[in-house]
Amino acid sequence: MAYFKMSWLALKWALKKPATSPYPFVPRRLLAGSRGKLSFTKDGCVYCNVCAKKCPTHAIVVNRANKKWAIDRLRCIACGYCVEACPKDSLTLKPEHGAPTITRDREIH
């Protein structure tokens, strides 16, 4: 039958477990290499401002005088350019993604 080429595929999958998952109830599998959320560790940071300079979207602001590091999460594109540039390895990209937000507040560390 030239008309029912899809039947086998549809029936096979009707009996199989669905490929999707009930998302909010079952969290998504995290992939190790994924560029998710940028995380900052205060310990080694020398507030050299390199990350802020390299950031293509100007999401990071560093204040050397007050020893403050801030990021605008809505602006960050998770490219990881700052992670590569950081001389002290204070920045890492975690595979998990950030929580949704509706405010534009800067996250200050």
């Binding site: 009707a14 669905p18 490929a19 999707t20 998952s21």
Partner: peptide, 11 residues
């Protein structure tokens, strides 16, 4: 629901 299963979705 059945349509979803045929399309490999949860539905």
């Amino acid at each position: 629901r059945i349509t979803a299963r045929m399309q490999s979705r949860q539905g």
